[in-house]
Design a protein around this nucleic acid. Structure first.
Lengths: 267, 267
DNA sequence: CAATCAGCCCGTACGCGGTACGGTATGTTC
DNA sequence: GAACATACCGTACCGCGTACGGGCTGATTG
């Protein structure tokens, strides 16, 4: 049972639905299905039972209609997933002003994205391939680019920074989810798991073959509750990334003139 | 058709296969199936037709055996995927000495991982959830931790740095794959695609609503062939991450004493 | 040697998933 | 009221993972 975002989806059809290219016909009777109702139901199902259990039959059931009725509004499951994802993007908050300069703005973007993944973990699995350009993705992209605009980076660099930050958020969210799943399934924390398996592993590996791995792996157990955990990894990584970006930004500012702190040339 | 790494896999059974806890019985006749033969066949299939088309029937067919014969050696598809992933980890080269300090070592780790994703793009989709602790994953982890050992970071930080770097590599590999897929499907580059869709998009959005997005999006088209592309994003992001790590490393070195460049305290 | 057994191999069948297809009913338009 | 478009959906098909039970074959034991 391979993946979401299947191979063959018609891009045009997909875009048409994303952008709602179709005036709502005013038919009164019937359950009154619509793309929005379907998408909302699907999101709710995915939130509750996970994306694995999201089936067309279940969606239609939740809506009180026949399975095939859904296909009147949505060409297929892949397109439905696309719209679900874009819908989520549309629900993110995007404050116009964030005090504190590019670093604060970018941090805010990162946290907002993390929040989204936390609220809808299935998003991590629905986003596996190139996102289809929906209205909300476009708005999101435009907004988030704003965080790193006018600080001396050119367009390509701005995109690269954003991609880097969002990639980190996604990785961290995935890691956090993995840890949470593990804890839920085994009742052990990540570190406890390592510690409990260390002796087992040594039975197969010449004792002490992987000293660093086992020390670091079980260090988590000792540190747990203090400085360790997925949140730590997220924060640490985010600060590292921002530190790295700051290096370039500082370089550009210097090149544009020591006294400038405002907008540099845009590319 | 949801995901790989399905919900219920017995961890013990999975570990047993990963670590090959079973002496090979010496039966002469028959096709002579084995976990290794199965895994090799499965990897080859995934390399050629992709992970979506990797089915147990196809694997068995490639091996010239009945479908259910595979299940004599592998409890299920999820476990097979686990072993496939661990097998790939085992094929990575891990030079003992890399000249140039932690930064060069970490870069080398990143590039080695990128190479792996390039060679087996399906790995991006097979790794979706927490990796099961196979022997080669353990070796990989141990080796890669070595890149950032003894530079003043504590254990948790070492793990976090490694996670950050590998996360970036994975994101970049995914992006590169997306772009490649898009080009293959549409015959257009990423930038060309943006440029060709810009007018279409403006028909739905009040013209100029997303100025930054469209400018940056199509900037790729102009820059293409020069400085842009997935490789650029990978390199740029990697350098940013390493710059960010360097900041902490420098701080720790300073704290440990201005003259020290060797190992700092490990905890 | 025969009897027994353990492991390997696999045909069949089940349940579940997405969805093609063809129909029916309900509302709109003239 | 006729003609038509649209919304809805029952049935059926194909492909998937895999449970189950049975047959085969070489190894083991007396």
């Amino acid at each position: 049972m391979p993946n979401e975002r299947k191979g063959k989806i018609d891009p045009a059809r997909s875009l048409a639905i994303l952008w709602r290219t179709r005036e709502p016909t005013s038919r009164s009777a019937g359950p009154g299905l619509s793309v929005d109702r379907i998408v909302r139901a699907a999101i709710e199902i995915a939130d509750v039972v996970g994306i694995d259990a999201l089936t067309m039959r279940r969606v239609s059931e939740a809506l009180g209609v026949g399975t095939m009725s859904v296909y009147t509004y949505v060409p297929g499951k892949a397109e439905l997933l696309n719209v679900m994802v874009d819908t989520l993007y549309g629900e993110m908050t995007r404050p116009a002003e964030v005090p504190g300069g590019w670093r604060a703005r970018t941090e805010q973007v990162a946290r907002e994205n993390l929040k989204l993944y936390r609220a809808h973990p299935w998003l991590l699995r629905a986003e596996t391939s190139r996102p289809v350009l929906g209205p909300n993705l476009l708005a999101k992209y435009d907004y988030e680019l704003g965080a790193v605009a006018d600080i001396g980076l050119n367009d390509v660099e701005m995109d690269a920074v954003l991609t880097l930050v969002l990639g980190h958020v996604k990785s961290a969210a995935q890691a956090a989810l993995d840890v949470a799943d593990l804890e839920r399934e085994t009742g052990m924390t990540d570190g406890q798991w390592w510690q409990s398996h260390a002796p087992w592993l040594e039975r197969f590996v010449n004792s002490g073959s992987y000293p660093t791995a086992s020390r670091v792996g079980s260090a988590a157990g000792e540190e747990h509750g203090a400085a360790y955990g997925p949140e730590y990894a997220f924060e640490f990584g985010l600060q590292r990334v921002l530190d790295g970006v700051a290096v370039v930004v500082a370089k550009r500012s210097a090149a544009a003139g020591p006294d400038r702190s405002g907008p540099a040339d845009g590319g």
